[in-house]
């Protein structure tokens, strides 16, 4: 069984029309797809406006957020030097860290997962260690990595790495272990050598599982980076939020939260899209 993500963005399924020749836009269908989320969003904003407008509210209502943080919303890429940058630049800094840590986690994770999935011996040796380490919360790794690397930047990358790697390992191993005997027998009859077996049978057969792991991994990476940057400081969306909190710019925090949510959503969709391209719609069942 693949490990499924717990805390992911819920995506409302959007209807896709198959025909290419659309002479008239199907207003009914578009309306049916767009109206419910728009309605919910409108209601949420309305409630927020009502409750945050009371004088003893600690949070600003949407209107205040828009007026106070309009420059943040309108100019995501300004750079006044130091830490005074647009949100777009902070997000980019965070994304860079995630890209590095996640890429490492993907490479090492798929490698280790393959090893553990293919070999009973490695499985017995490594699995207990994995099972213990994977329950360690991402931020608990931060002090250790700061001690080891003596610098914020590599520590943040390490935290991403160590957070994202477990679902990748575990799902890859599950995928490798679940390769049907039939495929193995086909490989044996045509006498594929181990390298050919790896690239032509193992990887494609396990790909749906691997991508399940990669998708959970990217979600966890994004969760972890925001938290890690709050502690490390310097740049990044997490740092921005912490900095805004220290300067009591609550409106800025709220705008930043939207950024975090949207970027996380896009990352998730991106990995899932690449996955569907690579696996040609083969699904984990």
């Amino acid at each position: 069984m693949p490990v499924h993500s717990v805390s992911n963005v819920v995506v409302l399924p959007t209807k896709r029309t198959k025909s290419v020749l659309i002479t008239m836009p199907d207003f009914k269908k578009i309306g049916a797809a767009l109206l419910p989320p728009l309605f919910v969003m409108f209601m949420a904003l309305l409630l927020w406006q009502i409750f945050a407008s009371s004088p003893n509210s600690g949070l600003p209502p949407p209107t205040t957020v828009i007026s106070e943080s309009s420059d943040l919303i309108l100019h995501p890429f300004f750079d006044n030097g130091g830490t005074d940058k647009g949100l777009g630049l902070h997000v980019l800094a965070s994304l860079k860290r995630v890209a590095l840590g996640y890429a490492l986690a993907a490479i090492v994770g798929i490698g280790l997962g393959t090893l553990v999935g293919a070999s009973q011996l490695f499985m017995r040796g490594l699995d207990p260690l994995f099972q213990i380490l994977r329950t360690v919360p991402p931020l608990a790794w931060l002090p250790i990595s700061l001690a080891a690397f003596k610098d914020g930047q590599p520590s943040a990358i390490f935290v991403i790495f160590i957070t994202a790697i477990w679902p990748i390992i575990i799902n890859t191993a599950t995928g490798i272990r679940n390769i049907p005997d039939d495929y193995k027998n086909v490989a044996r009859v045509i006498q594929l050598n181990p390298i050919q077996y790896f690239s032509k049978i193992m990887v494609p057969a396990a790909a749906p599982y691997i991508f399940t792991g990669l998708r959970i991994g990217i979600g966890l990476s994004w969760l972890a980076i925001v938290a890690a940057e709050m502690l490390i400081g310097g740049t990044g969306i997490g740092f921005f939020i912490w900095d805004a909190w220290n300067s009591s710019h609550i409106s800025d925090i709220i705008v930043a939260l939207f950024y975090v949510g949207i970027v996380g959503f896009v990352l998730d969709r991106l990995v899932s899209y690449v996955g569907s391209l690579v696996t040609h719609g083969m699904t984990v069942n």
Binding site: P180, D182, Y183, N185, V186, P204, A205, A207, H280, M282
Partner: peptide, 9 residues
């Protein structure tokens, strides 16, 4: 094989 065992990808 009993169940064709073509590689689906």
């Amino acid at each position: 094989f009993q169940n064709h065992s073509l590689l689906p990808w």
